[in-house]
Amino acid sequence: MLNEPITKVISRSFVIKDANIDTDQIIPARFLTTTERGALGEACFHDWRFTPDGAPTAHPLNQVSRDEQRILIAGDNFGCGSSREHAPWALRDFGVEAVITSRAADIFKSNALKNGLVVCEIDEAAHAALLDREDLEVTVDVVNQTVTAGNITASFKLDPFARTCLIEGVDPLGFILNQSDAIARFEQESAA
């Protein structure tokens, strides 16, 4: 269950221009041993950020201010590859609250939205403009389904149910649990 409603994400951005970033790059398989959220931030993009012996690399991800840069501008086809819910968990634990791309893998997008990570698929022209600018002040408006950064404005679409869950601050199970009184009334009326 999510904790807080997500209506807007306002933050500086960071950019990963690479296309076809798969879930194994986001969270390598050897880190999939946990079912608890909160501890995967250091494993996020681990093989890019660290050498095999654990020393930090010169990768730009190691320069990201995780408190101030919470919006990732990602290359096309982000989150492709195998289905792993750990990928959005790792991104959230790394500090990412929204991913902006021209296209995200369907399963990744579904998993992300269920876990409070907003995925915005925007048109290619706006996406290209954002990819060329590092460290922008960006606003992701979940209610109005827009991305704004300086003079760039783009719209994105969210599944209506996923949008409702984000705005209400619940995951799908939490949404159902919030309907327990209505479900009980329905069951009583149906039994009569």
Score class of each variant (00 low, 15 high):
C80I: 15
L2F: 08
A104H: 01
I100F: 01
R84M: 14
D141C: 02
A19G: 05
P52I: 00
A29D: 10
P160E: 13
A105W: 01
D132C: 01
E68P: 06
V99K: 06
E187A: 15
L72S: 10
R70C: 13
H86G: 15
N3K: 12
I26P: 06
D47Y: 08
F186E: 11
E4Y: 06
E134G: 00
K114E: 04
I73L: 11
V118N: 00
T35W: 11
F78A: 15
I152K: 01
P172D: 14
N20V: 03
D47L: 11
A154W: 00
S190I: 06
R163V: 07
T139A: 02
V96N: 05
G81E: 13
T23K: 08
I71T: 10
N115M: 08
S190P: 01
Q25L: 12
H46W: 15
T51K: 11
N77W: 11
F161M: 09
I183C: 10
G79L: 13
P160G: 04
T57C: 10
H86L: 12
M1W: 09
E68F: 10
K114I: 00
P5Y: 05
F45W: 11
D141A: 03
I26E: 07
S190C: 11
G116R: 03
E36S: 12
G174H: 15
L113M: 04
T7C: 04
V96K: 07
F45L: 12
I107S: 02
V140L: 02
D106G: 02
E97T: 06
A129P: 00
L117R: 03
V9R: 08
S65K: 14
E189N: 14
I152L: 04
E121Q: 05
T33L: 13
I16G: 03
G79R: 14
E134S: 05
Q69S: 09
E4I: 04
E124L: 05
G116V: 02
E187R: 15
I27T: 14
R37K: 15
H59R: 09
G95C: 08
N77G: 10
F161W: 05
S102A: 11
L40P: 11
F45V: 12
E124N: 02
S102L: 00
I16R: 13
R92C: 11
F50L: 09
G41C: 14
E85Y: 13
I16K: 08
N62F: 07
I6R: 04
G54F: 01
H46K: 14
T153R: 07
E168N: 13
A55N: 09
S11G: 06
